[in-house]
């Protein structure tokens, strides 16, 4: 359900990008998805297939996902650590005063267009 909503947003932005670049058909869309973006890649690609095939511009277009690692920063000891393994607590000093540096991205990296 959540992923379908995201797919509608991707389709809207891809259509806009295609129009701006005078592209008639898009064969691939490459996404950068952060590990802690709350998006399940398998659900996203399933929803994508269903929704994209309803659009002339995107028939058969493949959604490719690059997963970006999540990294947190500790304000107490100044070190960075992998968020998924340790969550909110810094593995170096045990502090809770940490914040996410990256890993919640949901961005369209690029689109692929048949070259003829």
């Amino acid at each position: 359900m959540h992923e379908l909503g995201i797919v509608f947003y991707i389709i809207r932005d891809v259509k806009e990008a295609a129009a701006n670049n005078h592209v008639g058909h898009v064969s691939g869309v490459v996404m950068n998805i952060g590990e802690v973006s709350t998006i399940v890649p398998e659900y996203l690609t399933d929803c994508w297939r269903w929704a994209a095939d309803k659009e002339e511009l995107l028939k058969g277009c493949e959604l490719k996902i690059n997963t970006l690692p999540a990294v947190s920063y500790c304000e107490e000891c100044g070190q960075e650590y992998p968020t998924v393994a340790h969550g909110k607590i810094c593995p170096f000093c045990g502090s809770e005063h940490t914040y996410l540096l990256r890993g919640n991205e949901v961005e369209i990296k690029e689109i692929e267009v048949p070259d003829d």
């Binding site: 991707i10 670049n21 369209i108 267009v113 048949p114």
Partner: peptide
């Protein structure tokens, strides 16, 4: 394999909404 041209977008899908 089919030859493709890459169009770079680099845009968060939340950007317009924000």
């Amino acid at each position: 394999m089919e030859k493709v041209k890459i169009v770079e977008i680099k845009k968060s899908i939340f950007e317009n909404n924000d």
